[in-house]
């Protein structure tokens, strides 16, 4: 991979260089034993996902030739360059990613097309004849929500969904524990390195809810539970809200996970699901992993 290193000097030289052509739909040759294409895989997903296909949607091909035979499928939370390298090393040139490839919700290439890093990533994808397709909106729309199905499995909470709520509730009643014990268990199971907490570590907790990414969801969920769990929420929303809840006398707590920590298991679930109707090529879940670490 040494030739893929982009030196600082090179990085500056490339800045402002000429037009980067949109790399979509370039024909590639592939000689794998199966003739299965990415487009055929996506067609099966659309048929099996159980909800009408929405437009507009983020769930589209982001790069590569959807009509070329694929060598294998990787599912992951985020198609980072590091993940793409690991996917190719594992022999899979089709990546199904939950989150964007080019650093914006809609993968808006026009904003970054002159960025040498974009150029670098595209070159890697093209050189390795990779195809990237995003599976976000419809995996969440699947019932049960594929991302939370993965969460329930990795946390061992499949039987803890709150009976008071609807069948696909994101509220749980777990065996009573302390906030700190819960957080430790979660840190271990999710292999997360960047969890942040608000609240008394010794607080006894049993009722929990996922509160998404936004303050509205936090406000709606808080009255019913002891602990809110957010997967990336801006600090001035969930954390400040929880701090005031506690200061005003409520016995509550917040677990703030990296976005990846909360949702990566859902893409392992996606690999399990895909294997039930895609058998021609290997399918592997490769975690993109917690982007962060915390200093001592």
């Amino acid at each position: 991979m040494e030739e893929m290193k982009l030196s600082r000097r090179r990085f500056c030289q490339v800045t402002g260089s000429g037009l980067v052509m949109a790399p979509l739909l370039m024909r590639s040759q592939n000689h794998s034993s199966s003739s299965l294409t990415a487009r055929e895989v996506v067609a099966r997903i659309k048929e099996k996902v159980g909800v009408p296909w929405r437009t507009p949607t983020a769930d589209e091909f982001k790069i590569g030739d959807p009509d070329a035979p694929i060598t294998g499928i990787t599912t992951t939370f985020m198609s980072t360059l590091d993940l793409l390298q690991r996917s190719i090393a594992a022999g899979n040139n089709f990546v199904i990613t939950h989150e964007p490839t080019f650093w914006s919700a809609a993968d808006v290439v026009s904003d970054v097309r002159y960025d040498p890093l974009y150029n670098h990533k595209v070159n890697f994808l093209e050189k390795n004849k990779m195809v990237v397709w995003r599976f976000h909106d419809h995996w969440h729309a699947h019932r049960p929500d594929g991302i939370f199905a993965g969460w329930n499995k990795i946390m061992g909470w499949e039987n803890y969904a709150s009976p008071a709520a609807n069948p696909f509730s994101h509220e749980y009643v777990i065996l009573e524990t302390s906030l700190e014990e819960l957080a430790r268990d979660m840190q271990t199971r999710l292999k997360t390195r960047s969890m942040r907490l608000v609240g008394d570590p010794k607080l006894r907790v049993t009722k929990l809810a996922h509160a998404g990414h936004y303050i509205q969801q936090c406000m709606q969920a808080l009255p019913n539970v002891d602990v809110l769990i957010v997967f990336e929420c801006r600090e001035w929303e969930a954390a400040e809200y929880m701090r005031d809840a506690i200061a005003s006398g409520q016995k509550k707590a917040l677990i703030q996970l990296p976005h990846e920590g909360g949702e990566e298991a859902g893409m392992e679930e996606c690999a399990r699901w895909l294997r039930t109707f895609v058998t021609e090529v290997p399918i592997g879940f490769i975690p993109s992993g917690d982007p962060f670490w915390m200093p001592a």
Partner: peptide, 28 residues
Amino acid sequence: PDLDVVITGDAVEWEAGPYFQDLVTAGG
């Protein structure tokens, strides 16, 4: 030129977060 690290408050984890993950992987 020659910049090693950027320090800031927060980054969106589908924007500047993975941008830096990729930048580090690419050696930038």
